[in-house]
Design a protein around this nucleic acid. Structure first.
Lengths: 143, 143
DNA sequence: ATTAATGCAAAATCTTTGCACTTTC
DNA sequence: GAAAGTGCAAAGATTTTGCATTAAT
């Protein structure tokens, strides 16, 4: 592989960050690649930090937190709150809902069209609906 | 008021705890009265502890946490997770959903029949649905 | 050069735990 | 008196912050 060849995934991540108005720094690029170069995923800050270290990136946990929140702010990620004292970040920012496996503490997307939300209440005065979160909590089937 | 007259609310709380299999201790009784003698409410451990102190009860924050979780375990309360790093406890254990006001960090019940959930996905193999939580996140209408 | 981002360690939150003491049954 | 519950302070866990250093434009 010739070194002057453009590194595709890298260039893509760079573009993605620029578009979002974030400087494509080494850490943000690295984290973006971990997050977005595969299938949609759900990560905790701690888990992503672990992956980064495994991939020999040098990044602090504080920067991982900061970066995840920046990504949420610019719409690259969505934060999912399902468990007290732990934040999950979802690379799927589209309209969809979640299974939460209480046993393992993991999340899975629910295809949009397998939940149908009929009739929503009106937003109370002075507010507007920002998002509707549906979480289906699953317990181990101790049949 | 004659001292031998039965204190109704107190007796009710006592009964409620006994039925749930919890010893009616001074702290549990006091917290139960704060929680259940009024309309349904959403409290944090910290807020409930504050109320207890205001009412001149002597109870530690640790005991408030323990008690809230015990109440959840026996079905007297329901825990609602909407915000990272803060647990809310809901005295309404019936089937219903929530508004979450992002601005103030407060919760409100949504009447059951103003949300209709049609079509739910089947629980993945080895699991069963424990609960379905719907949270409608409200933002301040900066119109 | 200028401006923004990072790393680190420290702090801030929120929650749980260990154990001696107290209360309930 | 036996068993369960409480208080306190300490520890845990997760997340945020302050500030000097480093990197990107």
């Amino acid at each position: 592989m010739r070194s002057e060849v453009v590194n595709r995934p890298f260039a893509q991540a760079q573009e993605q960050l620029r578009t979002a108005g974030l400087r494509p720094t080494r850490q943000r690029l690295g984290l973006a690649r971990l997050l977005f170069e595969r299938e949609h995923r759900h990560v905790t800050a701690e888990a992503l930090h672990g992956e980064a270290l495994d991939a020999d990136m040098r990044v602090s946990l504080a920067t991982v937190y900061n970066t995840l929140h920046q990504f949420v702010r610019v719409g690259l990620l969505r934060e999912v709150v399902v468990s007290p004292g732990r934040s999950y970040f979802d690379t799927n920012t589209g309209d969809h809902h979640h299974f939460f496996f209480e046993g393992s503490g993991t999340l899975a997307d629910i295809p949009t069209d397998s939940v149908e939300l009929r009739r929503l209440p009106a937003a109370p005065g002075g507010t507007r609906i920002g998002r509707v979160d549906v979480v289906i909590r699953l317990e181990d089937d101790s049949q």
